[in-house]
Amino acid sequence: MNEPRKQPDLARITAEINTGAPESRSETFRTAWNDLRKGFQQRELWLALGWQDIKQRYRRSTLGPLWITVATGVMALALGLLYSMLFQQDLRQFLPHVAVGLIIWGFIAGCIKEGAEVFIANEGLIKQLPSALSVHVYRLVWKQFLFLLHNLVIWLVLLAIFRPALGWNVLLVVPAMALILLNGVWVSMLFGIISTRFRDVAPLLDSLVQLAFYMTPIVWTTKTLETQGGEVAQRAKLAEINPLYHYLEIVRAPMIGEEVAAYHWFIVLACTAVGLLLAVLAMRKWRFRVSYWV
């Protein structure tokens, strides 16, 4: 007889949004910023929707969301064992490198690939619910963050097994994770708007993400190439061109007990500022057209 609380709460929040006044459609930076602000203020809505997405995906499953952890853990173990033998790496150091890399990569890839279709997938809500456009972006980033939290169980297991020496440096994970979440917002917003207008962008991004996986030090390390010397060591520097490497490094290094060079932070902060600017520009120009494009 007891009804779950999620549905009544969600209905109440939706009703409150529907009774709100329509927002001005002027193409200014202020209205674009207001969309981001108002969308964040409607966090009861996107928090409930994001959690509902997780429950719906694993409905009637025995393990439920734990399948996320199992799948990532099996892949990390398989790739860690294989490439540690190929590169002759110490498994105690290499397996955490691969596992944490896959965990963070899952969040980044999810925001890019699903972000490209975030507005297309929410066509019904966009046309029927007069909420801020950013609500759908926050919902997606929240869902991907929940996936990441599930996968952090793998990191805790590795800590218990290998017992790496973690110092106060591990606290850098908190601001690094905040930066990753912020980048997830602008990536989903920017690619979501562009892909809604140009439908070929989404499959293109999907292919580029797969290519970027092999170009990013996840199942290999820059130290492995540098130790070989000569031209191989010089080519290892090419990894520095890949911005995703720096995003991974600011989170992964503290989690596996390594130091983070300051330039990684500077590059990530610069990319974040540029990305936010591009996303706000896209919102300023095209956000009101998304409802027509979907």
Rank of each mutant, 00 (worst) to 15 (best):
E114K: 07
E114M: 11
G115Y: 00
A116E: 07
A116H: 04
A116L: 03
A116S: 14
A116D: 06
E117F: 07
E117W: 09
E117I: 13
V118F: 02
V118N: 01
F119T: 04
F119D: 04
F119H: 03
I120C: 08
I120T: 12
N122K: 07
N122V: 09
N122Y: 10
E123V: 08
E123F: 07
E123H: 10
E123Y: 09
G124R: 14
L125D: 08
L125N: 10
L125G: 02
I126R: 02
I126N: 01
I126G: 02
K127M: 07
K127F: 10
K127H: 11
Q128L: 12
Q128F: 13
Q128K: 12
Q128W: 10
L129R: 09
L129G: 02
L129Q: 11
P130L: 04
P130G: 04
S131V: 14
S131E: 05
A132V: 00
A132D: 01
A132W: 00
A132K: 00
L133F: 06
S134A: 14
S134P: 00
S134R: 01
V135N: 09
V135P: 00
H136Q: 11
V137F: 03
V137E: 05
V137H: 04
V137D: 03
Y138L: 05
Y138M: 01
R139E: 11
R139N: 07
R139H: 09
L140F: 10
L140Y: 06
L140D: 08
K143V: 06
Q144N: 15
L146C: 09
L146K: 02
L146V: 10
F147S: 14
F147C: 10
L148I: 02
L148T: 06
L149G: 04
N151L: 08
L152T: 13
L152D: 10
L152V: 10
V153E: 08
V153H: 10
V153Y: 12
V153G: 04
L156K: 12
L156S: 12
V157K: 12
V157S: 13
L158T: 01
L158F: 07
L159H: 15
L159Y: 15
A160D: 06
A160R: 07
I161D: 11
I161T: 14
I161W: 15
F162M: 04
F162R: 04
F162I: 12
R163W: 13
P164Y: 09
A165W: 13
A165Q: 15
L166E: 05
G167M: 11
W168V: 09
W168G: 15
N169I: 08
N169K: 14
L171E: 09
V173T: 13
V174L: 14
P175W: 10
P175I: 09
A176Y: 06
A176W: 06
A176Q: 05
A178D: 08
A178R: 11
A178L: 14
A178N: 09
L179H: 05
L179P: 00
L179D: 02
L179K: 03
L179G: 03
L179M: 15
I180R: 08
I180D: 04
I180N: 07
I180S: 03
L181G: 02
L181I: 06
L182E: 09
N183D: 12
N183T: 09
N183H: 05
G184W: 00
G184P: 03
G184M: 01
V185I: 14
W186Y: 15
V187G: 02
V187R: 00
S188H: 01
S188E: 03
